[in-house]
């Protein structure tokens, strides 16, 4: 049963190869570059928000405590945060920082600015291995 399913899948692949580059999951080097540009555009927006671009009510900005987003440790989330009393994803801690050191209004989880902040924070931490839960 299992084998026959696998064989059918393989046969499908061969057929797709023969049919040429019209499959939905195939992409080109140009696609990669464009998508990366799209990503970096959001990273740049996050960089801007992180460095004083966020409308902080008390002038305090993220980079004042986290130059180059260091000591934010995106690779360790979700993890227990004692400031929130439970295991949380990164965006919840970003909101904690927005509400406390910055004394400003929190963002919705899917707010484009929250995405941008996370994109920048992750970008500055690229290459570091995942260690969920680590304090």
């Amino acid at each position: 049963m299992k084998r026959s399913k696998s064989n059918r899948w393989r046969a499908g692949c061969v057929a797709a190869l023969a049919l040429g580059p019209v499959q939905a999951d195939e992409f080109t080097q140009q696609d990669l570059e464009r998508w990366n540009q799209e990503f970096m555009e959001v990273v740049r927006e996050g960089d801007r928000l992180f460095h004083g671009g966020f409308p902080s009510k008390n002038t305090v900005s993220c980079d004042q405590c986290h130059p180059n987003a260091s000591n934010t440790h995106p690779e360790t989330y979700p993890k227990f945060q004692k400031q929130l009393g439970e295991v949380v994803p990164l965006w919840r801690m970003i909101n904690w920082c927005i509400q406390n050191p910055l004394q400003s209004e929190p963002l919705a989880a899917d707010d484009a600015r929250m995405t941008a902040l996370q994109a920048y924070i992750h970008w500055e931490r690229r290459g570091v291995k995942l260690e969920p839960g680590k304090h």
Partner: peptide, 11 residues
């Protein structure tokens, strides 16, 4: 209220 940091609640 910022209570939980001293009056600890955990998971």
């Amino acid at each position: 209220g910022r209570c939980v940091s001293c009056h600890v609640i955990e998971q």
